[in-house]
């Protein structure tokens, strides 16, 4: 029981991070029907941006309040990563729009290889550890075997930030004119363009929002694990994509739900079965879901048009 509750907490924390990345995949897939392969690496890049700004704020500017530093880091990382998302779309994907279907996918793989090697060249190949930023924990209760079930402050921060930002972005997509334009482009790009929607701008903004949420995930990842390296983008990226598919690609609540489920499965698998095969478990789920339930939990079934 005590291990179960502890793993539940850990799984929800991890799941929040996956959910945030998954939204970027699901929105881009919904609007232009491509798997943005570089999204995992954008996430990794944002973790590096957050790491560097955290160091600048704490060591050079001497900000002692961790909460304030984290807030500033989060905002800066979101802004700069959004710019990266915009630039990537502008350079690598926009010229290929309306072209051959495989071209954007190959281009995205190219961006992914470029980004991870760019960070490796710019920042070095070694793991970058940070001093633990938030140490305090709340002991919830003591289990039978004397094992403390703890909820750490950083886990609370991660889950709260995720929840708040998700609400904000959900409002943005559901209630504002930008969100309406986005959903219109998703349904029929040509018609949307005829009705006066700037399709290019809408797609750019989709990438910007996706990158901003990836930056939140990157900052939270850094806060949770305290270490980041240049090749940390690939596996979380594929897992987040799994989450997006599991929840039903194109559906925002689905992406978050999928993220939480993947996070829970991964932590429980590590706790009760084998930690070596946790990635195998996540990848197998992807295959199984796609084979038996291709439209996911909350997605709409795809209609085959002749």
């Amino acid at each position: 029981m005590d291990i179960f509750v502890q793993q539940l907490i850990n799984g929800l924390t991890l799941g929040s991070i996956y959910g945030l990345i998954a939204i970027g995949y699901t929105m881009v897939f919904g609007i232009i029907g491509m798997v943005n392969f570089a999204h995992g690496d954008v996430f990794m890049l944002s973790a590096f941006i957050a790491l560097i700004f955290f160091l600048i704020l704490t060591t050079w500017l001497g900000i002692s309040s961790v909460a304030l530093a984290l807030l500033i880091v989060l905002v800066i990382a979101m802004v700069l990563t959004s710019l990266w998302g915009w630039a990537i779309e502008r350079i690598a994907y926009r010229p290929l729009r309306g072209s051959f279907r495989l071209a954007p996918l190959i281009s995205a793989i190219g961006v992914s290889i470029f980004l991870s090697n760019f960070v490796q060249v710019a920042q070095g190949a070694r793991n970058k550890p940070t001093p633990p930023m938030v140490r305090d924990v709340i002991v919830l209760f003591q289990g039978e075997s004397g094992y403390n079930v703890a909820l750490s402050y950083k886990q609370i921060i991660i889950m709260l930030t995720t929840a708040v930002l998700l609400t904000v972005f959900w409002y943005l997509v559901q209630k504002t004119s930008l969100g309406r334009a986005q959903r219109a482009c998703e349904q029929d790009r040509k018609m949307a363009a005829l009705l006066g929607i700037n399709v290019d701008r809408t797609i750019s903004l989709t990438f910007v929002i996706g990158a901003a949420l990836a930056a939140v995930a990157g900052t939270m990842y850094l806060l949770n694990y305290g270490v980041v390296s240049f090749n940390d983008g690939f596996v979380p990226g594929v897992k987040a994509f799994t989450a997006a598919v599991l929840g039903g690609i194109g559906s925002l609540p689905g992406a978050v739900l999928g993220g939480l489920i993947i996070g829970l499965i991964e932590t429980f698998w590590s706790a009760y079965f084998s930690i070596e095969y946790k990635d195998v478990a996540a990848f197998s789920i992807l295959a199984i879901v796609l084979i038996f339930m291709p439209s996911g939990i909350l997605g709409r079934p795809e209609v085959e048009k002749v």
Partner: peptide
């Protein structure tokens, strides 16, 4: 990686 993108474009 950069070459892959450039070739595709």
């Amino acid at each position: 990686g950069a070459g892959m993108v450039a070739m595709m474009v």
